[in-house]
Each structure stands twice: as structure tokens, then as C-alpha cells.
Nucleic acid binder design. Structure first.
Lengths: 187, 187
DNA sequence: CGAAGCATGTAAAACGTTACATGATTGG
DNA sequence: CCAATCATGTAACGTTTTACATGCTTCG
């Protein structure tokens, strides 16, 4: 499917970047729906250059440090547009290790379950807070023809997903606490 | 991390199964949070047997068809329990190709965006319907010490996630339609 | 001067998908 | 008898993570 190819083309379509910049974008922007590391990015950039979808200029930073500033070619832009138009089937639900654990949670005592659930909740709340802080920069819906539109809707999606996860964790915690009370009553 | 190892141990802890049965569980039960195919399962079962976490008996089905009925060993059960208790950090948000497309959607006209969004919505709704039909078997919250408890909470989580995705898609469709109206007005 | 960050790569291992390969059983 | 499903495996390929490897620049 070569998703990384299109992620990179999309980013370079906004502006010229180095491999390092692209890695940073993944870390600080695209993390809302994906993550790729530099060890994947550099080889893919090399390949895209060989295929003629991108080119690069070598720039000198400071005295001797060379960096490759990549830009998208016309061929690359065409390729990106074709991909953007593609209908796709929704993918298999991705692996969620915590839910696997909960699936088998009848093997744990209630206290352990609550502990695990609360721990997840704290972490998901932290992530939600970061997303919400990012969202503050948007006082209104950005124009649909700007970069910011895509960023905005994806950010909203990430927030909604995060809130839904937290709601689910709360529900599970509720079930466990209720069962705990009943257990105590029966003693 | 060897998540597949623990998924298999968890399943075998419920009851004895063949590799084929385990593949079916993935397809019809665990799909709510994961999917693994038989080409991963068979080698893993072999490895688990070598490591002493599972054993198997060869059963004859019909006249000659051999099947391996696997069961968990005591060692396997211990291993599973240790894993179940583990706190874990929430994982990187998994890859979502559609959101990547939407991230770059300013390169698409509004009509195309709406088309893509509606297509996703139909598919996610179908998935939601299947989940909801499965949920009908639960008239009340199952006892927390039974297998059904884990199944139940994970099912609820899957439904909530699905509903949240659909809500997001609707929101995006709303933005696009609003922009479309404004475009027409300005003509 | 030292730490944090900039910058680029490769290698090995782990994980996952698709394709190849084969054959038996069950139920209509 | 035929189709769907049961049943087990391997091989090749693609994706992702972790580790290895190196060195420069900027700012306090």
C-alpha cells in the first residue's frame, strides 16, 4: 500500500523539508493517527527520489553540516492527487493490547482490574489534555482550502476518540466498583 | 512484546482448541480489537509448544484427518497471569489511512471530500450494526468472574468507538456541506 | 564547554499480509 | 457430487521497531 510514500508526498506538497523535519512532523502533528521513525523515513525518501517523485538540494548548515532539502516533483504531485481521491475500505481494527488484557480480565481480581483501568485513564486523560491545548489555536473552523482545515478536523477526531476511550474506561471502572460492593455485602 | 503469545494463551485458558479454532476466534471475537491470521498462528503455536506453555494431542477427525488439539500447561497459565497483571503505557495511536487522507484533504474539492466521508460512514455503520446485533445477547451485565464479562466490556468499547467515529464523520460532512453552500452563494 | 537538539544513515529483528500448497469432511 | 468449511502448514514480501553508528550546531 505504501502509505508512508503518500504521507511524505503530502507533507512535501505543503513545503520543502529535510528527512529530519518529516520525522518531527510525525512526532508532533501526525501522531494523531500514525507514527513513523527516521529509520523508516530516510530509506523511503531515498526510494522516492529514485522513483522521481521527489528531488533534493544539499544545503550547508553552519560550517560543514550537510542537509538534504527535499521537494515534491510534478510527478509526485500527480501521484499524490490520484491517491487522495481513492475510496478505501475501512481497515481491520488495529491491535489494542489493553483491550486484549481486559478481554481476559475475568482471571484478575476486581482490585487489579480497577488499578489497570485507572492507570489507563490517567494516561489517556493526559493525551486528551495535550490535544485540547493544541485545539485552542483554532477559534473558528479554518477555511476548507487551507492546510489548517485537514489539521483541524483530524484534531477534532483525535479528541473525540480520546474522549470516547475515557468514557469506556469509566464505564468499566463503574462495573468493577459495583461488583466490588456486592462482593463485600455478601461477606 | 509477543502479544500473540498471550492472546493464544488466553484463549487456550478458556478451553482446548486447534489452530483453526483460534483463527476463527480472531475472526469472530477478537476482531473487536485485533486480527491475526492462520499463517501467524500456526508457527506461534509450534513455538509455544517448544517453550512448554502449551501441549497438544493429535485427534482423528473422520477417517484420516489429523488435527492438533492444543491445551495450556500450568507453566502457560502462570505466564498468562503475570502478563495480565502488567501495567502498560498507552500505545502510539495506530495508523489510520483515512485520517491521513483527510489531513491532506484541502487538495480535494468539496464534492470529493463528501463522497469519501459518506463512503466511510456507510462502512462504519455496517460494522456498528454487526456489533450491536452481537450485543443483543447481553440482557444484563455478565458476572465479573465469567468469560462473558471480558467479552461484554470489550464489545461495549467497540460500539462506543464505532459511534464516536461516525459522529466525527458526520461533523466533517457538516463542515464540507456548509462550505459548499457558501461557495454557491458567492457565485 | 556541555547539553539539547539537528542531521543522516544502516542492520537486525519482530510483526503482519499475501500467496503458495495440500488435502479431508460435512451437509445439502 | 459439489461447495463450503475444516485443517495445517510454508515462503516471500512488506512494514515497523529497536539498536547501532556517527558527527555537527546552537544556546546558555
Amino acid at each position: 500500500m505504501r502509505t508512508l510514500k503518500y504521507a511524505i508526498l503530502g507533507l512535501l506538497n505543503k513545503k520543502d523539508m529535510t528527512g529530519y523535519d518529516i520525522a518531527k512532523e510525525f512526532k508532533y502533528e501526525l501522531f494523531k493517527f500514525w507514527h513513523a521513525r527516521h529509520s523508516q523515513i530516510y530509506p523511503e525518501l531515498k526510494r522516492l527520489a529514485e522513483e522521481g517523485f521527489v528531488t533534493y538540494d544539499i544545503k550547508i548548515s553552519g560550517d560543514i553540516l550537510e542537509k538534504k532539502l527535499y521537494s515534491i516533483t510534478e510527478k509526485g504531485q500527480k501521484e499524490l492527487l490520484i491517491w487522495l481521491h481513492k475510496d478505501e475500505n475501512i481497515s481491520q481494527t488495529p491491535k489494542d493490547v489493553f483491550r486484549l488484557r481486559m478481554y481476559f480480565s475475568n482471571n484478575l481480581d476486581l482490585e487489579s482490574r480497577i488499578h489497570l483501568l485507572e492507570n489507563q485513564k490517567v494516561q489517556h486523560k493526559e493525551k486528551l489534555d495535550i490535544l485540547k491545548k493544541t485545539a485552542e489555536q483554532y477559534s473558528e473552523i479554518p477555511d476548507h482550502n487551507t492546510d489548517r482545515f485537514g489539521d483541524f478536523i483530524v484534531l477534532e477526531g483525535a479528541i473525540m476518540r480520546q474522549e470516547s476511550v475515557i468514557k469506556w474506561l469509566d464505564k468499566c471502572i463503574g462495573y468493577c466498583k459495583k461488583a466490588q460492593k456486592e462482593e463485600k455485602k455478601n461477606k
